[in-house]
Design a protein around this nucleic acid. Structure first.
Lengths: 129, 129
DNA sequence: GCGATTCAACTACCCGGGTAGTACTATCGA
DNA sequence: TCGATAGTACTACCCGGGTAGTTGAATCGC
């Protein structure tokens, strides 16, 4: 846990495919990332194996092909990685991280507010149905 | 560059010593981190060498000892690393990162506001003198 | 002057992300 | 049936963070 949910660049790209589809074969992932990454199929396969060993995905067999599923949620990964960075840079003080974003990255509070509202409404709608 | 200003855990600890003192020998850094890290002196030396190769510190010689200096500011490192994470997790959308912090890490906006005010006042005082 | 101490240099690991070639096998199509 | 294809398994790199032992040289203290 914790640091084990920290994912590399490629790992996140792969997870995004898995999160979007629920499950996918090596080939599915490879196809999905072909345009943007242009990697060999074996690279995806190797990475998925490493990720399974790490516990962030799992697979079942269908015929002789592997169908991978995420074992960690996007939310959880985001939380872990953001917490990790806050730890590294701000001794775990997340308010300091927000302050840094506002002051040093010119993040517009109005934009944040709009985004949050949008998210709240979306999850509200989801909760109602 | 950009990613080259991304520092590991130990590297940040070392940088903090350098940032605080302006410059320091291997031994200074080792002493400073002894309590918290308890590492061998050669570990610090090796790391500093790697960091110099990476361009984040430099050294000059004094007698036969090396005096290291930071070559990147804390501000710059924070900016790089935060931007990197925003890139990885939110496609570079920093407002989304802030939104995530507020909603998923229970960051208190009042606390952030207080912190920012404090920082603004501190830098104001510094600017005046 | 000489032994003890203090440096840096060099070398050597481990680990994990990232990348991929090759080998082997099951299965599909003609 | 048999060759092509599709899949996984295995193996092998590179790189950089992290950790440290050993070695060789300069210098300090007696």
């Amino acid at each position: 846990m914790g640091s084990s949910e920290t994912l590399g660049k490629l790992q996140i790209s792969i997870m995004r495919v898995l999160w979007a589809r629920g499950e996918a074969t090596v080939n599915d992932v490879h196809q999905a990332l072909l345009e943007s990454h242009g990697l060999a199929p074996t690279t995806i396969a190797t990475m998925l194996k490493k990720m399974e060993h790490k516990g962030v995905v799992s697979h079942r067999t269908h015929g002789r092909k592997f169908i991978y599923q995420p074992q960690v949620s996007e939310r959880s990964v985001k939380r872990s990685m953001v917490a990790e960075l806050a730890q590294r840079l701000f001794f775990g003080d997340k308010a300091a991280l927000v302050s840094h974003l506002l002051d040093e990255h010119e993040v517009d509070p109005d934009e944040v507010a709009a985004l949050r509202k949008q998210i709240a409404e979306a999850s509200g709608r989801k909760g109602e149905q």
